[in-house]
C-alpha cells in the first residue's frame, strides 16, 4: 500500500534535486541568509517526504511551504545565533552592484516589516520576487490572477515605506 504511516515517497530524491535550489532561494528572500534558508529547506523537504502531494504539483507546494516556514522562523525568532555573529563581522563582502547592496540594518528592517505583513501579502510578495509568474502565485495562494498584483503592490508599498522612512542619506 502506498500510504503506510511513516512511508517515504519514492520520488523524493528526484523532486529534491530538482526543487532544492528554488526552495532555498524562496527561503533566503524571506530570511536574508543562505544558511538559515538551508535549514528551512530541510524542514520543507521533510514535510514533503511524508506527503502525498503529486509530483506535478510539487513546485508550487514547495514554494509556498518554503515561504510559510521561513516566515514562521522570522516571526518566532528562531533565528540562529550565527546570524548575529555574522552581523558583527563588519561590512558585506557580497556582490556589490551599488544599487542592490543593502545594509544589514536595512535588511533587518525589511525582514521585520515582512514579518508584520498579513501572511498572504508576505507570501505573494516573496513568491513573485522568487520568479513565480502571476498565474503561479495565484494558483498557489487561491487568489485570482488579477488580485495578485494588488496584493504584491500593497506589500511592496508597506515595505518601501519602511525602507525610506529610515533610509540613510547617501
Amino acid at each position: 500500500m502506498a500510504g503506510a504511516p511513516g512511508a517515504v515517497r519514492a520520488d523524493l530524491e528526484q523532486v529534491f534535486r530538482t526543487g532544492y535550489p528554488a526552495v532555498v532561494s524562496v527561503a533566503a528572500r524571506v530570511l536574508g541568509s543562505r544558511d538559515e534558508a538551508e535549514d528551512v529547506a530541510q524542514e520543507v523537504f521533510l514535510s514533503f517526504a511524508r506527503s502525498a502531494v503529486p509530483a506535478a504539483e510539487a513546485p508550487g507546494w514547495l514554494a509556498v511551504a518554503a515561504a510559510h516556514t521561513a516566515l514562521n522562523h522570522l516571526r518566532s525568532g528562531r533565528r540562529r545565533a550565527a546570524r548575529e555573529e555574522a552581523a558583527a563581522d563588519g561590512p558585506l563582502s557580497a556582490p556589490d552592484v551599488a544599487d542592490t547592496v543593502v545594509s544589514r540594518e536595512e535588511s533587518g528592517r525589511v525582514r521585520a516589516a515582512l514579518a508584520r505583513l498579513p501572511r498572504k501579502q508576505a507570501v505573494a510578495l516573496v513568491l513573485r520576487h522568487s520568479g513565480l509568474s502571476y498565474a503561479d502565485v495565484a494558483a498557489a495562494l487561491g487568489l485570482s490572477p488579477g488580485s495578485v498584483g494588488t496584493t504584491v503592490r500593497r506589500a511592496e508599498s508597506a515595505l518601501r515605506e519602511e525602507l525610506t522612512s529610515h533610509a540613510p542619506v547617501r
Binding site: 533566503a28 528572500r29 536574508g32 543562505r34 542592490t100 543593502v102 544589514r104 535588511s107 520576487h129 515595505l159
Partner: peptide, 14 residues
Amino acid sequence: AVGAALSPAALTLA
C-alpha cells in the same frame, strides 16, 4: 527597491 532588499545576493551568500 523591495526586490533589491529581498535579494539574497545582497546578503551573506556563505
